[in-house]
Amino acid sequence: MEPQNDPDLQENELFEHFNTIASKGQEPLRVDKFLMNFIENATRNKIQQAAKSGHIWVNDVIVKQNYKVKAGDEVKVLFEHPPHENLLVPEDIPIDIVYEDDVLLVVNKPAGMVVHPGHGNYSGTLINALLHHIENLPVNSNERPGLVHRIDKDTSGLLVVAKTEAAMTHLSKQFFDKTSEREYVAIVWGNMEEDEGTVEGHIARHPKNRLQMHVFPEGDQGKEAVTHYKVIERLGYLTLVSCKLETGRTHQIRVHMKYIGHTLFNDERYGGEKILKGTTFTKYKQFVENAFKILPRQALHAKTLGFIHPVTKKKMQFDSEIPKDMAECIEKWRDYTKHSQ
């Protein structure tokens, strides 16, 4: 093999490296389309640029973007962009600080803001804003300053951030030991039969779509995940629900709700942007489309957060209002339900 074609020789010059093996059931599919299913936040253009630069390999051979991936193929891709330390740049971005003292702060993150820099999101993140606000944030095991936990880009709500190494260790242990308290409010498709319940099922990456997580009820894959839910209000074809996390897995509420047949409203990644419940009337379809416009993201808000303060050892409890887009959507459905009975 020519030296320039050897991915291991080039890997040190490139920031991100994805490696996956196409599953047994993989139908022949262009490699650029295949990678769109696997790489979060990567645009088709970004993948095509990688192909033109000779940075996509299948079975250790450089391929063009029109190569058809088949079952069993090992697909590898690298991207060129700034080194990791260059991503951690302070930026003067306003943040909603709910509470702050010498060792921690609690922020109310708006929907649309990415928590930390990564592929496709190199600036404008919560970490960039925090680094401007605080000079020396401690770094966690993933080299993410201040972070004890995180929430998805299009989920709004409360996050605690550590300002010292000791606070980070203490808070991280609370999340690991499941002693922290987190309640989310979600709007889900369908009228939930039970007023309350618990969803249990290990969560891991989806075997075919790497952008999704998936429930493995037998527990043969993934990590244990437990979500307790309670109906707040029934909105006809939707339900407003409270979800309390016992564990904190990636996309946990989104995946667990889909698993029990109640996908989050307008959750595009998990199919909630389609009309999953309701009538076939044109007027209804138009109404739902308008509701999607009011709430152009998954209907999920991290409403409350509780933990023991690392220094005072006092119980800290924080609550946040449901954001305007979710509140307007709820009101719209209340009105619809009232007039359609």
Rank of each mutant, 00 (worst) to 15 (best):
R254I: 01
I62F: 08
K46T: 12
V161A: 04
P82V: 11
I330N: 06
G120K: 04
G124D: 06
H256M: 00
K332Q: 14
R297Y: 07
L159A: 03
L159M: 11
V226L: 08
G219L: 00
K109I: 01
I187Y: 03
E74M: 10
L87Q: 00
S320Q: 09
T304A: 05
H133Q: 11
V75P: 01
Y184N: 03
Y336P: 03
D6S: 13
T282C: 07
Q341K: 15
G124F: 02
P296V: 03
A162Q: 08
E85C: 08
V311S: 02
K258Q: 12
N142I: 04
D325W: 09
T337C: 15
E328V: 09
K208Q: 14
R254C: 01
D220Q: 13
Q10Y: 14
A225G: 04
L276N: 01
N266T: 05
M213F: 00
M257Q: 03
L276I: 03
Q48T: 11
D102N: 13
H170T: 11
V63D: 13
L245V: 02
H262T: 00
C243V: 03
L240W: 09
K223G: 00
S180I: 10
V160I: 14
I322C: 07
N12K: 15
A204L: 00
K230P: 09
K64R: 15
